[in-house]
């Protein structure tokens, strides 16, 4: 497989490998995501899709290969890595809102401490973002006082407050009650429509059909398929993907 050093790729993974001891979790991963593209990563549990997502802002280290964001190679550790992470928004499965800070403070912490914004501006921007994701009323509350769906929308606002170039979603709806999944997905669909570059690890096939430009199917640490959503869902090429989809459809 030839590696294209395409200059228009915002996120670029080339020949990425990672092991957990004996387990080869990422096998020679090559993935290019263009600006404005929405890529949904699906696959069975343990296929390495979360690890892939977390490797992009180096919450997981990789053994070999190269990951670049906007043409810049991911730095090892330290200040440079922190600067780069500020450009990559991340939304976690378990929300991870700062438990000792109010909703508003959760959103303003990054802009104030990393972007050195003054508090008034940061508060104003944060309120606008919280309104946008529909939780403006909750600003003075503590995270534990909010429902899961509300917390996840705050987490999205917190990531957006850094004005990231790309947003990573690591199974953002997997810890949510069914009736709260849609309120989070709606926010994500809206973001996608506004042209945000997104990499979304999810089990929500509806979201993949509705908002994705590409679907990447992973199994056993490999990218097995990389296709447009309608192509992938109607005419999967590999047996692995056919098997996966058939199991989904029977439910």
């Amino acid at each position: 497989m030839t590696i294209q050093a395409s200059s228009d790729a915002l996120v670029s993974l080339n020949g990425v490998n990672k092991h957990y001891g004996q387990l080869h979790v990422l096998k020679d991963i090559n993935l290019q995501v263009k600006k404005g593209e929405v890529v949904v990563v699906i696959g069975p549990s343990g296929s390495g899709k979360s690890t892939l997502c977390r490797a992009i802002n180096r919450l997981e280290t990789i053994d070999t290969g190269e990951i670049s964001i906007d043409g810049k190679k991911l730095p090892e550790e330290g200040k440079e890595l922190a600067v780069l992470r500020a450009d990559v928004g991340m939304v976690f499965q378990s929300f991870n809102l700062f438990a000792h800070k109010t909703i508003l403070e959760n959103v303003t912490l990054g802009p104030i401490k990393v972007k050195k914004l003054d508090k008034a501006t940061a508060d104003k921007d944060a309120m606008a973002l919280l309104e946008r994701v529909g939780v403006g009323q909750q600003a003075p509350k503590m995270p534990a006082q909010l429902s899961g769906g509300q917390q996840q929308r705050v987490a999205i606002a917190r990531a957006l407050a850094m004005k990231p170039k790309v947003m990573l979603f690591d199974e953002p709806t997997s810890a949510l009650d069914p009736e709260m999944i849609n309120e989070v997905l709606d926010v994500m669909v809206q973001l996608a429509k506004e042209g945000m570059t997104m990499i979304v690890v999810t089990h929500e096939m509806g979201f993949a059909r509705k908002a994705a430009d590409r679907v990447v199917f992973m199994a056993d640490g490999q990218i097995v398929e990389d296709a447009k959503p309608e192509e992938f869902f109607t005419n999967p090429q590999s047996n692995r993907a056919k098997d996966f989809l058939s199991k989904l459809l029977t439910h």
Binding site: N57, L59, A82, V83, L84, R85, A86, D87, V88, G89, M90, F92, N96, L97, F98, A99, L109, G110, K113, V114, A155, R158, A159, A161, M162
Partner: peptide, 10 residues
């Protein structure tokens, strides 16, 4: 908590 903090660039 630490991952979220690192993810926003702290």
């Amino acid at each position: 908590q630490a991952e979220a903090a690192r993810a926003i660039g702290l």
